[in-house]
Design a protein around this nucleic acid. Structure first.
Lengths: 213, 213
DNA sequence: TCGGTGATGTGTACACTGTGAACAAGATCA
DNA sequence: TGATCTTGTTCACAGTGTACACATCACCGA
């Protein structure tokens, strides 16, 4: 039984769970400095292991970055789920569904604003639809951001708010709007806006989505 | 009179217009590989100059990247302007204004799809509203992307399509939606969609903006 | 119990990057 | 013409990703 030592100095030759430790270190680097900051050697340094040890668990720096990016997506999903769960159900399922869709967007944008480094990292690795449901990108609830959004849109359809002919591809519209705002706010031209302005913009954007979806 | 030599081998000690040459080289690198590909040493190599010569014109690699990013924004503006100018005026100014706003979005998205490397580079450098009108970010028409969009929204308002109380901050909504789609399409989860699907998504997105702005 | 073996971490090495400091070449101007 | 300022070069160094050979050790079958 290896006494798990938090300090960089290990007493055992084997680390125990190096992969996980490197991922955690990479995640912290990403949190602080975005994708460019997740540097392989620094991760190993923080874990207290030689640089090349990383190659036993990640083929590449890029593989590490991808793992960090996936983890960040999971955290984004968590933020969305938290916001959705904060919406109390009433006896008006249609209004609830609307509120929950807004909550999905709010959770996404909250994550972008509270964790810009992770947000940028989450979208720094090329992805595609086929892999967007991959479990490695899921949060604690087991859902990826896309799945959280899709579930919300399903509810919107089943409560009759969203006509079936508009359901298909609706993710795309909602996601684009919210993602764009997130990007523009954290390092695009919309940076430096006050909290109030961003909040206002967020509400207007969600109005637009609700009306235009 | 220096015979301008296109080959890396110069015969004069001075280059003539090194800053511009480095910028052009950087732009090509960005075109091919995005922001990460604009590496200082490679730019100097292509120009046929020693690595440190770059420091006479750019304080930093980041300064070079910023210049490249600004140039890319200018090209984006050009793409938008081209699309707008392709819209012929009719005797229905309101309908024209609508079509031109769509054209602005189309030009933006066309640029994202045709020049993904430049598009990513354009938004890889933190910016803010105060600097979004900077002339260094303007295209040949002298307008920055934000200014092209604003002009289009002004027209929409003056033709009565957009109620004045909705004019303020409308840039933000339109830009967010279109920017988000661009990002998601070139390396987000929406990558790998067919041309038709992207075209369809683009139209639906522009519908949403038009309705929800 | 013990030696073999495969997995995991280490050491050495190399190419490449950004960048500082001293130096060189040549334009410019008194 | 000679001093000076600008622009490019050379040398140097730290930091990065990564290949390759080696060391250590957990585990497993004899």
């Amino acid at each position: 039984m290896t006494t798990s030592n938090a300090t960089p100095l290990r007493d055992t030759y084997r680390h125990g769970d190096l992969r996980q430790a490197l991922l955690a270190a990479g995640l912290e680097l990403a949190r602080a400095g975005g994708p460019a900051a997740v540097v392989l050697r620094e991760s190993t340094r923080q874990v207290g292991v030689s640089p090349n040890a990383a190659y036993r668990h990640f083929s590449d720096r890029n593989a590490l970055l991808t793992a960090v990016s996936d983890a960040a997506l999971g955290l984004a999903a968590d933020s969305m789920v938290r916001e959705v769960e904060a919406v109390a159900s009433t006896e008006d399922p249609a209004a609830d569904a609307r509120r929950r869709l807004r909550a999905v967007g709010l959770g996404y944008l909250r994550f972008a604003r509270e964790e810009p480094g992770l947000f940028r990292t989450a979208f720094s690795v090329p992805d595609d639809l086929a892999r967007s449901g991959d479990a490695s990108k899921a949060g604690v609830a087991g859902l990826t951001p896309l799945q959280v959004l899709s579930a919300s849109l399903d509810e919107l359809e089943s409560t009759g708010v969203l006509p079936p002919e508009r359901r298909q591809g609706a993710e795309l519209l909602a996601w684009s709007a919210v993602h764009g705002l997130g990007m523009l706010v954290i390092d695009g031209p919309l940076r430096g806006l006050t909290e109030e302005m961003i909040d206002g913009a967020t509400q207007r954007l969600l109005d637009m989505v609700e009306r235009g979806i």
